[in-house]
Write a protein that binds this DNA or RNA. Structure first.
Lengths: 152, 152
DNA sequence: CAATATGTGGGGGAAAGTGGGGAATTGTGG
DNA sequence: CCACAATTCCCCACTTTCCCCCACATATTG
């Protein structure tokens, strides 16, 4: 029931993006096609089925609203969380605010990430990936504890 | 039933602001279109359905009135709280005091934040957001406990 | 190679957003 | 108490955006 894998997709002049067919049926039955798209710290977009998003939002709302970091996260994530439905052709219309945020041009990449999907501009995705590969090589032994004990 | 997402809106020469259509019906039935707008410490405006505001106000009133911070908050929030109704076209008229406080010019931004909505001057919002993105990138591992265990 | 499914593009009607004129209301000063 | 000014609110008209629908192009399958 988790999302995984990568898809090349295109965003048309109106800002529409076709959801890959293999996800559609699942999205329709699990959440009636009601999706939420928001932003991520790494300048990509996150796409959740509405029920999954509501769990996240609940956690965010519980954070103390006088805490500066907490409000910052709430404004970024909840503030950009946009409810979207698929149209009859299985496409979603990404608001221009979100497209601008992620620097989305015509060619984009859709990444399955468990409960959610990530939407990247293709160019950004490629350069980011190169950087990660390089940095993973670089810092040996500097991993936080929780990562150290991870066995793949 | 929570507010989320972002809208670009414009404030006209008379200080009026159109409430996005998708919120209108909800506001009419949940509170008869009776809203309360007040100020926030971050120089934006907060907009609540009247019943939601009354809960907040109650909490504020309960704060110890000898505490300096508490009185400060009470004066800011309760002091600026203004009751407003939507007009026949679904617009609200923002008092000039509040517009000045938030530095609202023609282009503004409306941010859903759970029980409330935030109203920002567009320029202020953009510069603030850049700062947040930078600070979120910067402090890894310095997050408060409650944020650390947040998995998105 | 036909036949069906998927991806892509665009036209057009409906709805929402925007702006301004003018009547009604409120407030102010004489 | 009245006259004048300022503000608020309702209405109408224009512009922009959104969304539904159709058409074609490309890919997949039998």
């Amino acid at each position: 029931m988790n999302f995984r894998g990568i898809n090349n997709i295109s965003v048309d002049a109106k800002g529409r993006m076709a959801v890959p067919a293999r996800y559609r049926e699942r999205l329709l039955e699990s959440c009636g096609g009601h999706l939420v798209v928001t932003v991520d710290r790494d300048y990509c977009l996150l796409m959740y089925p509405l029920p999954e998003w509501e769990i996240i939002e609940e956690k965010l709302n519980r954070l103390p609203s006088l805490n500066k970091q907490a409000r910052l996260l709430q404004r970024l994530l909840i503030g950009h969380a946009t409810e979207l439905d698929m149209d009859a052709q299985g496409r979603i219309l990404l608001p221009s605010v979100l497209r601008d945020f992620a620097g989305l041009k015509k060619k984009a990449v859709l990444i399955g990430q468990g409960k959610k999907l990530e939407i990247w501009d293709e160019e950004t995705w490629n350069t980011s990936q190169e950087e990660w590969m390089a940095s993973v090589q670089a810092d040996d032994g500097e991993l936080p504890l929780s990562l150290e004990e991870l066995s793949l």
